[in-house]
Nucleic acid binder design. Structure first.
Lengths: 364, 364
DNA sequence: TTGTAAGCGTTATCAT
DNA sequence: ATGATAACGCTTACAA
């Protein structure tokens, strides 16, 4: 008797490459037998459409609770060839810009009973290819990404489109015209903040831009439009470009500007971090903000924490995520079969203490 | 005729709640028939263990490529009753502390072919219960969380432990002794930074603490240990408690301290944001950092960006995530069957410009 | 070395 | 209103 048992166990162990795989899974069959009905009746009672008498339903629900049954989503997915899984791809989740988008996506996804796979795609093509395969194998229902244009992304987009898996770009690459896209309106944001400074009385308004950045180009365009709209003269020499969005970059650019014969009376930095660099440069020159020079940032990330508190253009991260996931869910559910959507979301100026009217002598 | 068709369509529509479910999935069978072998041979060739001749393998791989086959992870999971999915639960992904942990977890998970479901549990018990159910239904292989102790978490831990799904707390609740846990060593961090200030010559060292926080208690302990170890006198009156970790809290506490007859010559704020509040208070009083007063923060989040640059205690977020996921993977693979692990990771002092020796008159 | 076939836990069709 | 049963696409024991 004992020997027989032991032999059986050997067989089981053979199966158990992963020892932890104990089979504590309660199946629909067990619920059925406990409730004294068929599996199909249980299935109907648990939530799939169908006729079940109130009495039966109660019996089933009771049995479920008692033996701790949780439907197996994997089996369901296999049968229905549908999943409740969507993916969000970012260059780096550590970046608050993306983590805020992720947060709002997660929020809505979760309230639609979807779960969110988060993928840090980084910058290497290889990683993105690996992710693509993984998502394909897991049959994700849809994809949202905030990735820059690369060949690997192009590849990904093509593959998923071929398989009719909807994709939405949430402030990512603007290269694919055939993909749904929701982005912040960088032109409008820069235009608004520049107009604000112009209307405050500034005319020598510097722009601390960044080389080779699409966003930078759009914001520069907005900056220029502000001058056109208000009829004031644009002074191109106050547009300066740094190599990146770093604090050092902001510091260096501001130093250069302050070294000029006619330094600006106001400056727009391309993000709050660059603005912090600019603040350092300004203080080093013994000037004061906003008395001698007004300064604004972009992104509204650390703007509340600088000294003085920075006026900044807030990007609608939460809104980007919400709109993106809504579009995606509509596509997944087939509610929306229109052509590609392009949504542009307003950026919002947050007034704080770093901006003021220029000094009397400040005009050009 | 027309009527009949329409009737059939009605039935189909009934089925087609989700119209997008086109069946463009290539199966193993199709690969098999194209390669002229059986499905099991394809299975073996694709990567599951087993004998396949090199010739056959090439044939199969070719067929796979040609028809764009990607194994169905769902079917595989159903068969093997194993998934490659792990979940990471956070109170808020927006918090850089958690997003950095998430990032390092994702990194290792992904290189182990696992995908990471990200769950924003927020603070409502209901959300966490919903997440629990969802994860249960998706048969996640393991769970990492950074959540505070609540009844809902207790519930979750109990359920997953009953099902032998491994759980690791990454800097989360310290309440469950039977769960693997990896946390930063708050006692050591506070002790080190306090010793550093003592050895710099300070004796009136303030502690800007926070009420009802476990972390705060541990750091206070470390602060006290520093005095014990160095043999200097501890002055309890320099330990002050605010209601929360906010900038305002830091500002108010520092104001109080500076109003005393013998203000501190150094202060430890419980995070960088509180330190920013303290900086404001100090500047308002016309004092200078670090000449009149030294200041340190915790977390090393925005410390590089303050003016002056803040000396701060960096928490090992990346390391927390890495260790947590490693423990989890080992548990999942059954490599590790030891009792609960408790890992304590060192916090590291990052020296910047906000700390210096006290002025000659500063000693007690 | 390869093929056959059973079964993972559901859902959906059909019959009752 | 309920039950029997065939699939979903894969893995794997076993036969060939």
């Amino acid at each position: 008797m004992k020997k027989k048992e032991s032999r059986d166990n050997t067989r089981n162990n053979d199966y158990n490459t992963h020892p932890k795989r104990r089979k504590s899974n309660v199946t629909i069959k067990e619920v059925a037998s406990r409730a004294g009905v068929s599996t199909s009746t249980v299935g109907r009672a648990v939530g799939n459409y169908g006729y079940v008498s109130e009495q039966t339903r109660r019996k089933v629900l009771k049995a479920m609770k008692e033996i701790g049954y949780h439907p197996n989503a994997i089996a369901r997915s296999l049968k229905t060839s549908r999943t409740q899984t969507i993916a969000y791809l970012v260059p780096s989740i550590t970046n608050p810009f993306f983590s805020q988008i992720a947060s709002s996506i997660e929020d809505l996804a979760s309230s639609h009973e979807c779960n969110l796979i988060l993928c840090n795609a980084g910058t290497k093509a290889d990683k993105l290819r690996k992710i693509t395969t993984m998502l394909l194998e897991h049959r994700v229902a849809g994809v949202i990404h905030s990735l820059p244009s690369t060949d690997a992304l192009y590849n990904l987009v093509e593959i998923f489109q071929n398989r009719h898996v909807p994709i939405v770009a949430a402030s990512g690459s603007r290269r694919f015209t055939e993909v749904d896209r929701v982005t912040a309106d960088d032109v409008q944001g820069a235009r608004d903040v520049t107009r604000f400074l112009i209307e405050l009385g500034h005319s020598r308004i510097a722009l601390l831009a960044v080389k080779n950045s699409t966003t930078s180009k759009l914001r520069t365009q907005g900056y220029k439009e502000a001058f056109q709209q208000t009829g004031y003269n644009l002074h191109e020499e106050y547009i300066v470009e740094g190599p990146d969005f770093s604090e050092d970059s902001g510091y260096t650019l501001m130093k250069v500007l302050l070294g000029r014969k006619r330094p600006p009376t106001a400056a727009v930095a391309f993000n709050d971090v660059m603005a912090v660099g600019a603040i350092r440069a300004i203080e080093e020159e013994g000037l004061s903000i906003p008395k001698d020079i007004s300064l604004v940032g972009f992104d509204d990330t650390i703007a509340r924490l600088t000294q003085p508190r920075l006026t900044s253009v807030a990007l609608p991260m939460g809104e980007i995520g919400r709109v993106a996931i809504r579009i995606l869910l509509d596509r997944i559910e087939g509610k929306d079969t229109e052509g590609p959507k392009k949504v542009l979301l307003r950026e919002k100026l947050i007034m704080r203490d770093s901006t003021a009217r220029p000094l009397a002598g400040g005009s050009l």
